[in-house]
């Protein structure tokens, strides 16, 4: 199982802050998961302007996932 979180405009667009998602398969990447989620929700997560984190660390979409990971999708950050 993966734990998936969404923040800011992505969370508002989907109307969901977090959800569990069955772990797809070994070798699955953040980008693969994103494709599955976009198919599930029937929409783009953020008009393409999206960042991802795996277990609280920024990662590229090519990052492989492991069962039990927490994966987050969010727009570019605007703190400070």
């Amino acid at each position: 199982m993966l734990h998936v979180k969404f923040f800011a405009s992505v969370r508002e667009r989907l109307g969901v802050g977090e959800m569990d998602w069955d772990f797809p398969s070994d070798g699955c990447t953040v980008g693969d998961l994103l494709q599955q989620l976009e198919a599930h929700f029937g929409q783009d997560l953020a008009g393409g302007h999206l960042l991802a984190a795996r277990n609280h660390v920024h990662v590229p979409f090519s990052e492989p996932l492991r069962d039990g990971d927490e994966v987050a999708f969010f727009p570019p950050v605007t703190g400070g």
Binding site: F7, A8, A53, A72, F74, P76, V77, T78
Partner: peptide
């Protein structure tokens, strides 16, 4: 910090609210 810490600002204005990009 501005380019990597996971914070997001939403501006509340007299005509509505919108996320800062």
């Amino acid at each position: 910090l501005k380019s990597s810490a996971p914070f997001w600002k939403k501006e509340i204005t007299p005509t509505g609210a919108h996320w800062v990009t």
